[in-house]
Amino acid sequence: MAAGGDHGSPDSYRSPLASRYASPEMCFVFSDRYKFRTWRQLWLWLAEAEQTLGLPITDEQIQEMKSNLENIDFKMAAEEEKRLRHDVMAHVHTFGHCCPKAAGIIHLGATSCYVGDNTDLIILRNALDLLLPKLARVISRLADFAKERASLPTLGFTHFQPAQLTTVGKRCCLWIQDLCMDLQNLKRVRDDLRFRGVKGTTGTQASFLQLFEGDDHKVEQLDKMVTEKAGFKRAFIITGQTYTRKVDIEVLSVLASLGASVHKICTDIRLLANLKEMEEPFEKQQIGSSAMPYKRNPMRSERCCSLARHLMTLVMDPLQTASVQWFERTLDDSANRRICLAEAFLTADTILNTLQNISEGLVVYPKVIERRIRQELPFMATENIIMAMVKAGGSRQDCHEKIRVLSQQAASVVKQEGGDNDLIERIQVDAYFSPIHSQLDHLLDPSSFTGRASQQVQRFLEEEVYPLLKPYESVMKVKAELCL
């Protein structure tokens, strides 16, 4: 049975990233139509530049190519590739079939990587351009969430054990800070992308030097003109047959890092959902379990974690691919890159769409948070109580021993009897502590235990987050809708 299948058929496997999760716009960027249309555009740009620099290419040939950029006979191309065992030459023939007058000058002087690699770089750039505003929107939604809850005390956790208090907004800023680093890295790697350009079979530009009869300047002009037509500021000066596969490492490393950030955020949300302090959106008709109707599973956060793990592992592909590119190139890269580049971007696209949807509907339960604080705060307040007693004339050592005994009794009630923490009640009825009984409410005010959390939130948002989001103001209103 021949390899390949009808990918629109229910009898043929289709990647869930495309069929179930990723956005239509990201799927289109990695589609065959987008790819092969870009090949034709690159052939047109090459012909236009070659004509401008004096090669015998007519206006009629150029116009014929322009008129057929979208006229792609995919069936013919597939048949040609089956016959020739070469995808680029299959599309040269297919393009030439609908451009008979231009057929002889299509791909003039070029090698397969002229269309293959340059198209990949265009796709990487455009895919990054799709991700950047999506990530900015996630940051914006979380920034709104953090600002609104900047002063809401909550129990902090280290080692997932109760620690000092923080605020809900401050905790959210930990998430935002990681995503801001990801946004900066995505922008950097996007701006650092260079075009492969017009380089020939081993990167020496020998074929173009021959076409222009040894004119170095025209060869350099050709490279520059096509690079500018493709919208790049610069091209690699040095290439082998391909652009260095280190570029793929750079791009997928940034995406993998984004995956790590999203995994951490969504894990926190899942843990908070278990504590009943916070939940992701839950639709009115949504079913959490087929057997347990009360369940409210954090399905979206779980999906993000599941896909983020996949995204983090994909960076190993370009690392290994770059390491086995012998001399000017081997074909070890080809099949692998067809999979890992598309999957990385479709996965990143999915987790950003999902995280935006989550961040637009996060639900906080202040009463649950308050109750958990009441359970733990008495123990945390013991040092403040000791200091207040010393100020009232008591002995630190005597007070410490009193607190120690009462704390152990209260802990026994919590752990052995399943009761509430009654340390404060014990202190309130103990005559030894009568000098500070009137101060206990103040000493137990949760806001006095959150330090500068709310001020940190305000400063972080104003100095770091809002300036970073400013270039994306025009796209901030787009909502994230999930079908599944």
Rank of each mutant, 00 (worst) to 15 (best):
M299V: 12
R196E: 12
A322N: 07
K147Y: 13
S23N: 10
A381M: 10
Y472D: 11
F208C: 09
L211V: 15
T267S: 13
A163D: 02
T154M: 12
R196S: 13
A392C: 12
Y13A: 14
Q458P: 08
G109E: 01
K367F: 03
Q63R: 11
S31T: 12
R125N: 07
L183D: 03
C304P: 00
G418A: 06
I72H: 08
I62R: 06
G214K: 10
K170H: 08
L84A: 10
E383W: 04
K264G: 04
I62H: 04
M76Y: 11
C98G: 10
Q325K: 01
W45E: 10
L319K: 00
E60C: 12
Y21N: 04
K264E: 01
P318M: 05
C399E: 06
A431K: 14
L222Y: 03
S407M: 00
K276W: 04
M76H: 13
V168C: 09
N353K: 13
A411W: 07
A78P: 10
D216Y: 08
H310M: 08
P153L: 01
P446I: 05
D430P: 05
Y243K: 05
E360M: 07
L108K: 01
M181Q: 10
A150M: 09
A392N: 11
I287N: 06
P293W: 02
M278P: 02
N274D: 10
K367Q: 12
F157P: 00
L346W: 08
P293K: 02
R309P: 01
D333C: 06
L482E: 10
C180Q: 08
S359G: 13
H91N: 13
L423S: 05
D191K: 07
M26T: 06
S306P: 02
V324A: 12
Q439C: 14
S301V: 14
R188M: 07
L341A: 14
A127P: 00
G418M: 05
A3V: 12
H86I: 00
C483V: 15
K35G: 05
R125Y: 05
Q51C: 07
I62V: 12
F212H: 05
A47R: 02
E383Q: 00
D117S: 02
I436A: 04
H86V: 00
H93M: 11
G240T: 11
L314R: 10
L461A: 02
A47W: 02
S261Y: 02
R374L: 06
Y13S: 09
R426Y: 10
N384G: 06
K470I: 08
V254P: 09
E220Y: 09
R396D: 02
V364M: 08
V465P: 00
I287H: 06
G394D: 07
I369S: 13
A77D: 10
I106F: 08
K284D: 13
L469D: 02
P100T: 12
D248T: 03
A291V: 02
M76E: 12
D192P: 02
L444T: 07
T313F: 09
C266W: 03
M225W: 06
E48Y: 04
E277K: 01
M387N: 12
T227K: 08
D178S: 07
D87P: 01
L142P: 01
Y13D: 05
V138K: 05
V457C: 09
E370F: 14
G169A: 03
D268N: 13
T94L: 15
P16I: 15
R338S: 02
L183K: 06
S306M: 00
N71L: 11
A77C: 10
I265P: 01
I373M: 10
L443H: 00
A3T: 10
E360V: 00
K75V: 12
G451V: 04
S359L: 07
F28C: 07
I238G: 07
L84P: 01
M26D: 03
R329E: 00
G203L: 01
S474W: 15
L272K: 06
Q63E: 11
F282R: 09
R303C: 05
L130K: 13
E80A: 15
L406F: 09
A256R: 03
A273P: 03
A453K: 03
A260S: 12
T350G: 09
S207I: 08
A392D: 08
A308V: 05
D398W: 08
H442P: 08
S112Q: 00
L468T: 14
K295M: 02
Q320K: 04
L258P: 02
P318E: 02
A308Y: 04
R245L: 02
D11Q: 09
I139M: 10
H310I: 12
A110L: 05
F95T: 08
V115I: 15
C173Y: 01
Q356D: 07
G288Y: 02
N126S: 14
L331M: 06
A260D: 03
C304E: 06
K75R: 12
E343N: 14
R33C: 15
Q458T: 14
G240W: 00
T119I: 07
T166Q: 11
T239S: 14
R396G: 03
W39C: 08
D120H: 09
S12F: 13
S448M: 15
V324Y: 08
S306Q: 02
V138P: 05
E79H: 12
Q408G: 15
L209A: 11
H93N: 14
E473V: 13
L186E: 05
F236S: 09
A143W: 01
Q325A: 12
R245K: 08
H91R: 05
A388H: 05
K170S: 02
M476I: 15
A22C: 15
N118W: 02
H107R: 00
Y365G: 03
P100K: 13
I369D: 04
T354D: 05
P298E: 02
Q428E: 11
P16V: 14
K284G: 15
I72F: 12
N185E: 06
T166W: 01
E79G: 12
K470D: 15
S151A: 14
Q286R: 02
L311W: 02
D445L: 13
I123Y: 00
P10D: 11
C113F: 00
A335P: 08
Q375G: 05
D191E: 14
L482R: 06
L258E: 04
N384Y: 07
D422P: 12
D268L: 01
I176H: 03
R296K: 06
V364E: 02
C340V: 15
N336R: 01
L275Y: 07
